[in-house]
Amino acid sequence: MAATPEIPNSDKNGERRAREPDEAQVVVETRALSKVYRDFWGRQKVRALKSLDLEIHKGEIFGLLGPNGSGKTTTIKLLLGLLFPSEGEAIVLGQNATEVSKNERIGYLPEESYLYRFLNAEETLDFYGRLFNIPADVRRERIDRLIKLVKLDAARRRQLREYSKGMTRRIGLAQALINEPDLILLDEPTSGLDPIGTREMKDWILELRDQGKTIVMCSHLLADVQDVCDRIAILHQGELKELGRVDELLKVEDVTQVKARGLSADCQDEIRQVIERHQGELVSMENPTTTLEELFLSIVRDSEARPGRRIVKQEPTKQGKS
C-alpha cells in the first residue's frame, strides 16, 4: 500500500473523491449523550460529556478532535459499551450501544495495545477470531491474510511482550479487522508512531474507507486528522464545539490559491499587475513548500534503495518528486 500522495484529500487518480459517504445510512447516532463520572457516594466528580448530538454516516472517516480531557475517548468508550451513559443514548448500527451483539460488526483499536502479552500474534488473532465464532478454516485464512497485511509475518510466532510499539499497534489493527467489521473505531491511531508508521496507518485507514467501511477515530494530532478525515467534530470540555466537513471547515473563504508550473519571472510580474488592477491583495507568490513528511519519506526510500552516504542537494526540486 505504498501510496505517494502529495496533498491530502486531493484527487489521486480521481479515485478518492469518487467515494462519497452514503448520506442516507446513519451508522452511529448519539442523542443528548452525557457522561458524568461519580464517586462512590454518588456525588458528581467530573462531567466528561455534556449532551452530545452526533450522526456518523456510512462510508465516511469521522474524526473526534479535542485537547486532552475533552471527552473524545469517553465518547468512543460510550459507543463501544464500555461505559454506560448517564443521560441520553447512543445507537450504533441500529442497536443500543450497550448491546453486546452489535460488536459482531465492529472493530476497535484501543489507544494502548490492550492485548494479552503472553500470546503470540497468531494465537492472539486466533483467540479473537474464536470470540467472533468464526469457524476454524475461515479463521486460519483470515489470520494469514491479516498478518501479511500488517507486515508481521516475520514476528508471527513471537510473544507480544517482545513487540515494539509500532508492531503492537499493527497487531492491534489486525485484531480489529479479524471479523471484517463495518464500523471501525480507532482511539489515537497514530499517536506514538514514527513518520513511516504514521503514514502506513493513514494509508490503511484510507484503504479501509475505500472498501466501504465507516471509520471513527479520535486524535489530538491535528495534522493526521486533517490528512485523513472526511468530517470532524471538535470537542472541548465535553461539549461539541464544531462539526462539519474538513474541507469546508478549513476553507479560507476570501483567499484564492493558485499553483502553476513553469512560470517565468515575467509571468510572475504580470500576474502581480493583474491582481493589482483588480484591487486584489497579493498575499504571497513564492515557491510552495512540500511537507516535511514527504521529504522524510523520500529520503528513507532513497536510503533503502541505495544504501551509503547520501549526496546532499542544495535545494529540493520544485516538483517534490524524486
Binding site: 464500555l82 494502548e112 490492550y114 470470540l131
Partner: peptide
C-alpha cells in the same frame, strides 16, 4: 491492564 477492553468489545457475553 485493560486487556478486558479488547475482549468485551467483541460479541462476548
Amino acid at each position: 491492564s485493560k486487556t478486558i477492553y479488547t475482549v468485551l468489545t467483541k460479541p462476548v457475553r
